[in-house]
Design a protein around this nucleic acid. Structure first.
Lengths: 240, 240, 240, 240
DNA sequence: CATGAATGAGCTTTCATTCAT
DNA sequence: CATGAATGAAAGCTCATTCAT
């Protein structure tokens, strides 16, 4: 079909060449397809770079449907942020932690976080986009959400079990602990490209990930272990 | 090594060494103004969102000059990435570390990194943008740069002095150590908006920063301290 | 065969055959106005010189609509080429030729070609533009078109009738004959400005056209006439 | 050299990377290089599409020099038109024609014209550009030139020798004859792309050219041959 | 419920050209 | 004689969005 047909080129569908199943698709399916496409596109190009057209094309729908279901581009982005948090919470809820083994449970926890970021690069990328926009959208979707994150609750339980068992220090907050774990996993994934250039090695290699996971686990466990003698609190306390 | 790496913006001679005339200095000033404006605008809006017009306006110049000096938007972004790395390296080089006091030196190092990110949000934001684009630009400016970063070199020296003094473990690499410190500082700054919503508290408050810096310092120092008894290596080794 | 080839601009139904509403007719009208304006503007300024803005203004529309209906400037040019060929074929199809009078029919044919070029300078100019661009666009619209042109088919019929009547040579191909006629008409029109300067006379004057038409007709008829003695085949054959 | 150097990217030369010989080149050599480059670029892209930058780059010089030597883009185009006519006249002047053999001389003449166009596509293309612009530039360069073209003078001599020898008709003007020959050669070359699509065969193939040259020669010679009985002058005079 | 048509503002980039030595 | 710096205008094109059924 050439440019000289009656139908405009920019139209995504027409009565002859419409992508299969668009009309037949239920409303919910269309909405879902758009949401999924938006996650991909926004993750790849950012909020500004992810155009409405790219998304509608990726969803095999048309621009107009985005406005129909999400109001506007920003509304769609809010839905995207909401959805990726939902997915993360869902995955986290599936974690099986043995509180009878606090160290093992913490290892599992660390492994989960580090790997979740790695396996869901769109989560990391989208959070970066959201932070670029100063959290403008997250406020809108988080309002209905309990402020304390489930993940911190989980960390809290693990930490407490360790304290109770006498293997973890009592003066560490779950919040701080979780943030440090998240930071380690997040940074390694989020900055993998600049770091790879910076370090001259490929952080995406599986071995690099395994090494990092082991290192982080080691450092965190040492950091919260009950220490026979406190070394680090003040400068020069144990030596000299 | 590129020209802007070796020659700071304030350079007073041109590439042939001839003393600069009025016109030429204004040329350099125009270029510098554009670069500085670009850093601000790209940091605030990302690469896609940071329009050429916004930049030229902020630089009190015109669009055309950006193409004259940097070829295109992407060339400007490359120059921006180059410049922010240069600034970081420069700041890092100014660090005065007493290798006679390894713990103190490491504290200083951590404080520097955490605070640099906090005080240079554009650095963090721009690195995020660059990673969104899969490091497309960093390769162009980093190619001539020695792979090992100065910061890791510094970390290496501090770490070694501690090992020599018998206070730091010998089985930790400077690379890993530096990455963990960077991760902690970076994540706290980069994700401050989503984390603030997530945690229901303002991570930008000075107290929040001080708390985080103290926590990270504590955890890192404990993590690399020589431990009388190894606790964390394998699950349930000392306590079961 | 493309839509605009089969369906003239005045088509009153859309591609699904549904009678058109007010809005849809206006859509078709917009598209037609753009196409007509594009023919004029591209003919006058060439492809590069014919700006999208000039066209949209001439069509009393806006730039954006050109992209809506034709994708981009090149797509519009493809549609233009398509349309002018369609018009030529249409005009040619309207020719009434008496095969009972081969010489007369050929005269008519020559007159038609020479005058069509003269009366449709945009056709000539646009073909020149298309050839400047190495036929990049014609391929896109011609692919579905039968390779032999209708005009050559017509020439073939006239030629054969003359051969059958014993007045035209049998060893001349319709293709070559048509090309020579076209060349004569085309060149006189296409190069009228440089030729006018070159010859010091105005080729656009009606008398100049009439003279040229007569000369070409005479030369062509002599060229294909059955000759009692072959004169021109080889150098010095009959007259030495 | 990266974008962050002091020198602008858009500059074509600088003190380090200047193309060899630019400064050392004599003024005349620079002018010639620009003129040659302009011929190529204008021939390929037309007047509008041939940008000053493309030309200066192709000439391994800088934009500014074009203004220095030719005033502006239009002045350069005038010089280009002037130059290609000069070259054609020069080539034509080199033709050796035996007036003792009028038919052979005319064959040579036809061969020269057809082949010159083929071997100098830039000539054809540039004349098309000039005609697109309604001969705006040719007037400026032709003013000093004698109006009658050398080629027509040559044709005149050949024609007269044939008339004197009794082999060519006396009622054909050199002007008309030359125009027909030129038309045939020009059209075949100029429109080779659209014709190739139109006819479904490649007019650029050497065989196609040879065939065309033979056909044109045959038709022209038949057309101007003294005919024992006039056939073509008026409709139906010899038949029926 | 769904969609074709339309749009104004903005985007990045290139244009031919002049300024000021 | 030659050239680096600068520039306003315009180029082609994409943007998110609304209109009108």
């Amino acid at each position: 079909m050439t440019a000289s047909t009656t139908r405009p080129l920019a139209a995504k569908t027409n009565s002859v060449g419409r992508p299969i199943g668009v009309r037949e698709r239920s409303a919910q399916a269309t909405r879902d397809a758009i949401l999924r496409a938006a996650i991909k596109v926004f993750a790849k190009h950012g909020f500004s770079g992810g155009s409405v057209e790219k998304i509608s094309k990726a969803a095999k729908s048309v621009d107009r449907m985005i406005y129909y279901y999400f109001g506007n581009k920003e509304g769609l982005f809010v839905a995207v942020i909401d959805e990726i948090y939902r997915r993360f919470d869902e995955a986290e809820a599936g974690l099986e932690l043995d509180t009878g083994d606090p160290v093992g449970a913490l290892r599992t926890m660390i492994r989960f976080v580090v790997r979740y970021y790695r396996e869901h690069p769109e989560f990391v990328s989208l959070l970066n986009s959201e932070n670029l926009h100063r959290g403008r959208h997250v406020g809108r979707s988080m309002r209905a959400r309990p402020h304390a994150s489930p993940a911190i609750g989980t960390t809290e339980r693990v930490l407490r079990s360790g304290i109770d068992a006498g293997v973890f220090r009592a003066d560490v907050s779950a919040r701080d602990l979780y943030l440090l774990i998240a930071a380690a996993g997040y940074f390694h994934q989020s900055n993998r490209f600049t770091l790879s250039a910076f370090l001259g090695e490929d952080l995406e290699a599986p071995a690099a990930l395994a090494h990092w996971e082991a290192f982080v686990t080691d450092m965190v466990l040492r950091g919260i272990a009950v220490a026979p003698r406190t070394l680090a609190r003040s400068k020069g306390n144990t030596h000299g």
